[in-house]
Design a protein around this nucleic acid. Structure first.
Lengths: 142, 142
DNA sequence: CTCATTTGTTATCTTTTGTTATTGTCGAGC
DNA sequence: GCTCGACAATAACAAAAGATAACAAATGAG
C-alpha cells in the first residue's frame, strides 16, 4: 500500500492517491511532465521501489507505445484513463456516491488506509466521510 | 469554442470539457483507450474537424513520443497533465476557489460559454454557480 | 419587430458540508 | 499499569450547496 500526497498552503498533507498491491505508483510528474513533482511518495507497507533516470525513461517511451500503462500491472488501466474516470466521478457524483464507487473500485484500500487519507482522495473532510459512512450503515440496517 | 459532454442516468447533458480556440479537442477515449467514447463532441462556434483512423493514429503515437500533446497547439499542455491539474482542483479547492481558478486559467471561456456548461465542468449546479458569482462581485464592491 | 424558448438570477426550504471541540478506542513506548 | 499521541465518531453551529419555483433577461426563429 502506497500513498502520494502534497502539502497545501496551510501546510497540511493532502493525500492524492492510494495504491494497493499490484499497482505501480510512478512519479508521473518528473517522468512525463519533465518537471519536479509536487508530490511526496510514501510506502504505507513494505514496497518495492524501482529507480529509473529520465533518459532511460525516454527510451522506454520511444520503444513501447504502451508506456502509459505504467500504473497497473495488468496493463489495462492507464494513468490518463484513471484520471479521466476520477474527474468524471467529481463531475457526475455526489460525495456519498463517490465513496460508494471508491469502495467498489478499490475495496482493498478501504480497510487498510486511514479514513483521513481516503477523505482527501474523495475531496471531502474526514468528518464528512465519517458522516457518510454513518448514513450508509443506517440505510443498510433499515 | 467546442464542448464535450455525456448523458447521465437521468438523461441530462453534463458538460465535461470546454475548449477555446488554439486547443484541439480530441476523441481521447476512442483513440487512446481503444473503446467507444461516452462523450458527445459539439462545436459551439465554427470549428475545424480533422478525422483520423485508428491505425494512422497508432503510427502517430509510434513516431512521435510527444503524441500526448494532442490537446494543445503549443504542445505545452498534455491531456494527462490537464487531468491531473483538474483532479487537484477538486481535491484542494472549494467550488468558489475552483471557479476563480477556472476564470484565471480559461478567461476566454468564461464569457462565451453558457454558465450552465461551466457549472458542470466545475462539478456544481448552475444555481450554485450563480450564487458564487454573486458572492464574488459582492466582495469586489466592498 | 414579436413571440417563444432558453438562460440566468433570486428566494425559500431542506440537506449536506465544513469547522471546531469532545469523547472513546487503540497501540506504542516508558 | 500508565501516559501520550493518533485516529475515528459524534455533537453543535455556521456556511454552503442542492432542489424547486418564480421572475427577469437574453437569445433565436419566423
Amino acid at each position: 500500500m502506497t500513498r502520494s500526497y502534497f502539502i497545501n498552503e496551510k501546510g497540511d498533507e493532502i493525500t492524492f492517491q492510494l495504491f494497493p498491491e499490484h499497482y505501480v505508483m510512478g512519479n508521473v510528474h518528473s517522468l512525463l511532465f519533465n518537471e519536479p513533482s509536487k508530490f511526496v511518495y510514501q510506502a504505507l507497507e513494505d514496497t518495492k521501489v524501482y529507480v529509473i533516470d529520465n533518459e532511460s525513461f525516454q527510451n522506454v517511451i520511444l520503444q513501447n507505445p504502451r508506456f502509459l500503462d505504467l500504473n497497473r500491472m495488468d496493463f489495462n488501466n492507464m494513468p490518463l484513463k484513471q484520471a479521466f474516470r476520477r474527474v468524471e466521478s467529481f463531475v457526475l457524483l455526489s460525495p456519498e456516491e463517490r465513496y460508494l464507487k471508491y469502495m467498489n473500485d478499490y475495496p482493498s484500500v478501504i480497510n487498510r488506509a486511514p479514513d483521513k487519507y481516503i477523505a482527501n482522495v474523495l475531496g471531502i473532510t474526514p468528518v464528512s466521510l465519517s458522516r457518510i459512512k454513518g448514513r450508509i450503515t443506517a440505510k443498510r440496517l433499515r
